[in-house]
Design a protein around this nucleic acid. Structure first.
Lengths: 136, 136, 136, 136
DNA sequence: GTGGTCTAGACCACC
DNA sequence: GTGGTCTAGACCACT
């Protein structure tokens, strides 16, 4: 489920963090559901457990998961401190949208992505819909 | 115009790079217009000229600006090699949109940002909309 | 292995960049093999580590190598975004060939160089054979 | 005939130098033929005569032209110091060929370029002969 | 140990 | 004046 790229300039732990976050925000792992254990992830990805631990700690620091000693890590239903984080992300989003527009991507294409909604927040359909992309 | 955050994990030169890029993609600095000189930016931001130079150099490498020795740095009208870059950015955009949706930001708000179009591509309204934020 | 000429108009870091690129394209350093460390190169060439770093950074930007933090720099098997680059290089090649012909170098000599193929791409006559690599 | 790119990182005088050299090595301007005057070039290219002068000086320094005071600049039939220069260029040629091969350009394509011979060196001999140069 | 960032200060090339 | 290169030395982050 999580893909690692050893050639990526980003550290491994961050790739794992992003991979897990992706599973969370897309709803692949539901709130209060348990994440795979450190040892499981470590052996699955053939990686040092310390690195996994670091990714989980970072994720907990951002409020996406909570850990119960001896039980494991679980997905948070709501993200604490979400206000601040949301503001940061919105800024990033604004810049990214502007840059893509500048590069010639039509607003409709971006809107389609926004509405695609992999986690099923508004439509409530679990059927993931992939918009067709014409070959350029 | 450019805000630096020394506590940010991203290096200073990248923050400067992004800051300048933002000015470019939003049209604040028009194509073929000159950017502030390295020394000017350095003193304005209280930063070593080498660091500024590096940001400009990276921006030139990405095709957003071009430099003429002894004259200054200027905004490129078009970014070449945008194909690959666009694909990367679209991936980032997808992730970011999913995360924001997860944090409870309605799709309509994101759509509005996408369509806001700061560079005035289709019909930019000058009425800036600020999302309501409660004090934390 | 890498020769520097301080009287050359080209900057040192570019000479280093070209020197390393030469080792890569001739196959002297194989894909995924590690390059000498920044500090090693710096002391070998009696040059400031920053300058070496810059050369490697530029090489990474062009896609010839990739760096892993704390591990080292490695040769990329394939260069992405080669389309644009190839076009530029072909133009250079054309000019260079014309100039050499003008200087009296017979076409056969140039052809021989082209076919010499230091990396052993088609039919290494030295007995060295490059094994076919399946797409990764 | 000479195209200038103000966005090019290379200085203008060098672009002019290369442009003139191209006319010479492709035979567009024959040996002992006069080049356009500084003033003519300056007005044609809308450039400061000093810049033109510098390009011509550089070209003379490399041995491609010779100047007669009050008469103008003329194409050299033979390039003095050609030995050294030829060696440098051959090295460049070798590297460039290796890089292009590395990027996947077939040897045949490069060979075709080499044999294209814009100046007509091997087929129609215009009577011009490049005498062999003994080591200087 | 590795790569990467930043500063300070100097010097060069272009215009 | 402009951008660009190089050095020296320090410090950080990753493994």
């Amino acid at each position: 489920m999580i893909s690692l790229n050893y050639r990526d300039s980003r550290p491994i732990y961050e790739q794992i963090k992003e991979g897990l976050k992706r599973l969370i925000v897309t709803g692949a792992i539901a709130p209060d559901e348990r994440l795979p254990s450190v040892r499981t992830l470590a052996s699955d990805l053939s990686i040092n457990p310390n690195t996994i631990q670091r990714a989980l700690s970072a994720l907990e620091g951002e409020g996406y998961i909570y850990s119960i000693h001896g039980r494991g890590s679980f997905v948070s239903g709501t993200v604490e401190g979400g206000e601040i984080r949301r503001k940061e992300l919105l800024d990033q989003f604004r810049s990214l949208a502007a840059e893509l527009r500048f590069l010639g991507v039509p607003a409709d294409e971006l809107t389609a992505i926004v509405r695609a909604d992999p986690a099923g927040h508004d439509g409530g359909d679990t059927g993931k819909r992939q918009e067709k992309e014409e070959a350029q």
